[in-house]
Amino acid sequence: MTYPRDDAPPTTSKHGDAADAATESLINAKGSSAIATAVTINRPVAEVYAYFRDFANLPSFMENVVSIEVTHDKTSHWTVKAPAGATVSWDARITQEEPDRLIAWTSEPGADVPNSGRVTFRDAGPRGTVVTATIAYDPPGGVIGKVIAKMFQREPAIQARRDLARFKQLMEAGEIATPAMTLKQFEEMGL
């Protein structure tokens, strides 16, 4: 039986192998674990794409990104939080780009976390823009590393959902909602 193609992120599809579907569309795919998530942002596609394409903006809503240094028009150096207060880093290269439609990347050889992915931007008419992130990665330490990352809330599937939710808040409201107390206040109270 043939099923109609749906536009859900590959890992949420009800048909086929999710990991294969998620990495199928990636150029130079790197990574054995695949995740995908999507959000609809009530802003025009050109505005959403432009904000995301300026990589200096990404740490403003990507919680685990410590810094992104743009080294060239198509390359950048990423430093990201890892479990237990550590950081990991890699150089990334844009492998495909279509303005207002998609940005795809792959990590360069020697990355602490080999990864690749793509973010697509689809006009949803009066609803705004559907942003879909698909990421393939190799967690440090394999399966055990993935479990540890989940325990510390640093696993990419968890972070991608949270980051896109913060991106939506930032684009629609101009700010990201935060708890009434800061993380430092929680720590001082022993919570």
Rank of each mutant, 00 (worst) to 15 (best):
Q96D: 13
D123R: 14
W105Q: 06
D7C: 08
T106G: 06
E47S: 01
D123F: 10
P109A: 05
S89R: 14
Y3W: 08
Q96G: 13
R161S: 13
T95H: 06
T71N: 00
E47R: 13
M62P: 03
A180S: 15
W90K: 04
E47Q: 09
P156M: 00
T134H: 02
I27C: 12
Q96E: 15
G31E: 03
H15I: 11
W90M: 01
E108G: 01
A22L: 05
I94N: 08
I158S: 12
A50R: 15
D7H: 15
D100E: 14
I148A: 12
K146I: 08
P139F: 12
S116Q: 07
I148P: 02
A180L: 11
A92H: 12
M171H: 01
A18S: 08
D112S: 06
G85C: 02
K81G: 13
I27A: 15
P59Y: 05
A104P: 02
K30H: 11
K74V: 06
A21S: 14
T2R: 05
P126L: 08
W105M: 01
R118I: 00
A21K: 15
A19S: 14
D7F: 11
A104W: 10
A157W: 14
A165V: 07
P44I: 00
F121E: 00
A149I: 10
T178Q: 15
S13D: 14
T79L: 02
D54E: 04
G141N: 02
R93L: 09
A160D: 08
K184D: 11
T40N: 01
G145I: 04
S67T: 10
I94W: 01
Q153D: 10
D91N: 15
Q96T: 11
S76Q: 14
P4V: 05
D100A: 11
D100M: 07
K14G: 13
I35H: 08
T71R: 03
A21L: 12
D6F: 04
G31A: 01
T75S: 13
D163E: 05
T134A: 01
N42I: 05
G31M: 01
T87H: 15
A92D: 08
F121W: 00
T106D: 03
T134L: 03
A157D: 15
W105Y: 05
Y3L: 04
S116T: 08
R162W: 06
N28C: 04
Y49C: 02
M62C: 05
N42M: 03
M1D: 10
V70T: 09
W78P: 02
A36Y: 10
S76L: 08
V88G: 12
G190A: 05
A86F: 14
G174E: 00
S116E: 04
W90P: 01
Q159P: 00
V88M: 11
F152D: 02
I103H: 10
K150A: 10
L191E: 11
H77Y: 09
G190V: 02
I148H: 13
V48S: 08
T134I: 01
A173F: 10
E172P: 01
V147K: 15
V130M: 14
M171A: 03
E98C: 12
A36F: 11
T95P: 02
L26S: 06
M62N: 06
